[in-house]
Design a protein around this nucleic acid. Structure first.
Length: 511
RNA sequence: GGCGCUGUAGCCAAGUGGCUAAGGCAGCGGAUUGCAAAUCCGCCAUCGUCGGUUCGACUCCGACCAGCGCCUCCA
């Protein structure tokens, strides 16, 4: 019943206890919007979207913040390269990012602050660190002095004196190599803001410290991001905030694993584009922007694929896994269709409990209800244990199997009357599947990517062919009947005969 | 070199100090079907290697082997 989370700071699972009763503040590091997002940018949003759903389901009031970094060296480089103002590039790429989030069903984010909207707070934060002796101005830049912070390195488990630090021109202005910039002086032609240290812009890490403070407070519950951000980004954030406030910044640091390309050892994102020669993603899985991938695969497939594996694991991303996810989803989609045939109701319209408490009804003595309750409890147990979505999805499969089995054994197809108690009981049991899949953000509406009823004349032609085949079969002319079905199969159109003589058709197989 | 992660069936992937080690895919055998599709039933693993702790480890510790990530303003 108690939620436990793995905390990068302590390297162990801990009971989840909020700073303020029943309230949770979550800060997730979002993208630097200098070019289109890639699939790797979606891992954090999908898992944290799920985490928020689960916490809300458990009765917490959750405030989830994802920042947008819209000022940065890479953006400035793009500005020079494209001859387009940084702000325009940022705006364009932010829209791209938001579109991708929406396609994957990520709709739980409460606020998305931009770095450029918090320049004042960043300057105040920087000044405070200087005043307290943790930072120093040097030639128009301001650096954080890592040797002044006795706690520095505790998140990533490093010694400050071992750090290489960034090289180049900044190195000579630093007291020690591990020091990092809070404020950077601007060169001519670069975007700049006035500050006590002259024209300049924020360093990379300070924006998150300033924005999380402004929105979530000096101490909040969960800070998330990709595993690659542990060092230096989160280590530096942590140092800035705790030195500035003299109190813990975050209770739980959660880091998601990174994606790896399937076909070779290349990596996704980062600056490795030219360093991983064989690292191309296949066309369906990766070429073109993420928007193209989503268009080809469907957002739900990608979400399901990501949720199948525990969020802290490395996930190998490629066609193989995506195809498997597609096949897995078919199992559910087919059940939803069957459910509708039997009950006359759409699964996607089923009302279901949206809190743990509301869903916690007594199991009836009859077998279906009992096993459904058991699976529900098992699902929640998995989620309680550091949001084990992979294990929880296993329970969802079992749930569908139990529902199908029950429908088979009770011959629900033959009942005919949707008010029949057997049907009513079945609907009741299926509500639990809706309740649980909602937590994962799955099956919330009719899948967009499924084949089936097309527009225009095709459905009419299909009706005609199905009718002809039916007549042939009634005359025991199976040769003609099979000819129609096989020819359609060649066109990737599958016929499925139902009990009672109806025939349905669909485009394509699971993949 | 420093920090860290992973190694469970053909493949993907949960999990636990001691009942029959989830689930999915593929495969095999059945039920059902005119034949199919879908669905259901059954079969399919001793948990990288070697030691140690323990009454007992796949689960804890150590070593080793293998793969991977970060240490470079990559989520």
């Amino acid at each position: 019943m108690t939620i436990r989370v793995y905390n990068t700071l302590t390297k162990q699972k801990e009971p989840f206890e909020t700073v303020a009763p029943a309230k949770v503040g979550i800060y997730l590091c979002g993208p630097t919007v200098y070019k289109e997002s890639h699939i790797g940018h979606m891992v954090g949003p999908v898992i944290f979207d799920t985490i928020k759903r689960y916490l809300v389901y458990n009765g917490y009031e959750v405030h989830w913040v994802v920042n947008i970094t819209d000022v940065d060296d890479k953006l400035i480089a793009q500005q020079h390269e494209r001859g387009v103002p940084m702000s325009a590039i940022a705006e364009e790429m932010t829209i791209d990012y938001l579109n991708n989030l929406r396609a994957l069903g990520v709709d739980q984010i409460d606020r998305m602050p931009k770095a450029t909207e918090h320049i004042d707070g960043i300057i105040r934060f920087t000044q405070a660190l200087i005043d307290k002796g943790y930072a120093y101005a040097s030639g128009g830049d301001v650096f954080f002095d890592v040797l002044k912070d006795p706690g520095y390195g505790k998140l990533s488990n490093r010694r400050p004196d071992e750090q290489q630090g960034e090289g180049g021109g900044a190195a000579s202005k630093k007291r020690s190599p591990g020091d990092f910039a809070l404020w950077k002086s601007a060169k001519p032609g670069e975007p700049a803001w006035n500050s006590p240290w002259g024209q300049g812009r924020p360093g990379w890490h300070i924006e998150c410290s300033a924005m999380s403070k402004a929105i979530l407070g000096e101490t909040f519950d969960i800070h998330g991001g990709g595993l690659d951000l542990v060092f230096p980004h989160h280590e530096n954030e942590l140092a800035q905030s705790e030195c500035c406030h003299g109190k813990p910044m975050v209770k739980y640091w959660l880091h998601n694993g990174l994606l790896r390309k399937g076909d070779d050892a290349g990596k996704i994102g980062g600056r490795s584009d030219r360093e991983s020669p064989g690292g191309k993603l296949s066309r369906s899985a990766g070429a073109g922007g993420l928007a193209d991938v989503i268009a080809a695969q469907g957002g739900e497939r990608i979400r399901f694929f990501l949720l199948k594996t525990h969020y802290r694991s490395t996930v190998v991303y490629g066609d193989e896994g995506l195809d498997e996810a597609a096949g897995n989803l078919e199992t559910f989609y087919r059940f939803f269709e069957r459910f509708q045939r039997m009950t006359g109701q759409r699964f996607f319209n089923l009302p279901a409990a949206n809190t743990r408490e509301a869903g916690n009804v007594e199991a009836a003595s009859e077998p279906l209800s009992k096993v459904v309750r058991q699976l529900r409890a098992s699902f929640l147990e998995k989620m309680d244990d550091d949001f084990n979505t992979g294990g929880a999805i296993g329970d969802l499969f079992e749930l569908v199997r139990e529902l199908n089995r029950h429908a088979d054994q009770s011959r629900l197809e033959e009942v005919g009357n949707v008010k029949d108690p057997r049907i009513v009981g079945f609907v009741e049991a299926t509500r639990v599947l809706r309740e649980l899949s909602n937590i994962l953000g799955l099956f919330r509406s009719t899948p967009a990517q499924r084949g089936g009823a097309a527009e225009g004349v095709v459905p009419k032609l299909m009706d005609l062919l199905i009718d002809l085949r039916k007549e042939a079969r009634e005359k025991k002319d199976f040769f003609t009947g099979d000819k129609i079905r096989n020819a359609l199969a060649q066109m990737n159109i599958m016929l499925e005969d139902r009990k009672g003589g109806a025939t349905e058709w669909r485009m394509g197989g699971p993949s």
